[in-house]
């Protein structure tokens, strides 16, 4: 049985797809059979971030409508044998994802994979509800910023009331916080909410802190999950996150600004 993980946030642009791509790649590199599904029907982007956009033939909705088999639609990652991508379709029909269809696909995947990662679209509408409905675990991606934190809190309410586990009265979804676009310098200046501030409000288990990093854009430019950029702070932070998710005790990094030398201190460089 695969573990189903939803990457969610409510607010858009906080880093859900970046996180989905890196978590999936990280798990696969640790030897886990992993598939990552794009639930953003109509606005697919995961294939771009994964760098497989030119290999998309069939998509998630084709599989749901029985127009293609799962093995036809799944794209094997060229960098890691254990990783597969199931792209979203570009159809404008929002209701293309039926609950029965999604259930069937997830069940089929569940038999052959260790982890199924559901990349949720922004918002709280149909696509987002479908992405989280069958989840076992949820990673709530949040920026240290008021609207993102508020939306995350709303998402937590939905996770605990509208999911399959909630409706069936089963053990609730395990919820994790991933703080992204964190800027320690601005936190130090009192211009940005700190990890502790966000934790005080959301009270979730902290899975990781991803620093604001130029490497994220560079990685998306070339269609490489940023976790593969091992030199970068964001890449390392994502690696830590994956290890932590798998149960390792890894201390949080990138929480403080690097110590500055005398000259840069003097000139504020």
């Amino acid at each position: 049985m695969a573990k189903i993980i939803v990457i969610t946030s409510g607010k858009g642009g906080v880093g859900k797809t970046t996180t989905s791509a890196s978590l999936a790649m990280g798990l696969a590199q640790k030897g886990k059979r992993t598939v990552v599904i794009d639930f953003d029907v109509g606005l697919r982007n995961l294939d771009l971030i994964m760098g497989c956009e030119r290999r998309v033939v069939y998509d998630f909705v084709n599989v749901i409508n029985n127009e293609a088999s799962l093995s036809q639609a799944l794209i094997r990652d060229k960098r890691c044998d254990l990783l597969y991508v199931l792209p979203a379709s570009q159809t404008r029909d929002k209701d293309a994802l039926t609950k029965e269809g999604v259930a069937r696909v997830l069940e089929e995947l569940s038999a052959n994979y260790d982890f199924v990662i559901c990349d949720s679209p922004a918002g709280i509408e149909h696509g987002a509800t479908m992405a989280m409905y069958f989840a076992d675990d949820a990673v709530v991606v949040t920026n240290p910023e008021v609207s993102s934190v508020r939306d995350s809190d709303r998402m937590l309410g939905i996770l605990s009331s509208k999911s399959r586990r909630a409706e069936m009265n089963e053990e609730p979804i395990r919820e994790f916080l991933l703080l992204t676009r964190y800027d320690p310098a601005r936190v130090q200046n009192g211009e940005m909410l700190s990890v502790d501030d966000v934790q005080e409000i959301l009270a979730l288990k902290l899975l990781g802190i991803i620093p604001e990093s130029k490497a994220v854009l560079t990685a998306s430019n070339s269609g490489t999950p940023v976790i593969l950029d091992r030199e970068s702070d964001a890449g390392q932070a994502y690696s830590d996150m994956v290890a932590r998710y798998l149960g390792d005790e890894v201390p949080h990094r990138f929480l403080h600004t690097e110590k500055k030398g005398f000259l840069s201190r003097l000139f504020g460089g």
């Binding site: 008021v146 934190v149 508020r150 009192g190 211009e191 700190s194 005080e200 409000i201």
Partner: peptide, 16 residues
């Protein structure tokens, strides 16, 4: 402006 994060936190606590 120093301490705008404090304002953010207070507003969020009430809102949430």
């Amino acid at each position: 402006i120093p301490g705008s994060a404090t304002v953010a936190k207070e507003r969020l606590q009430i809102l949430v």
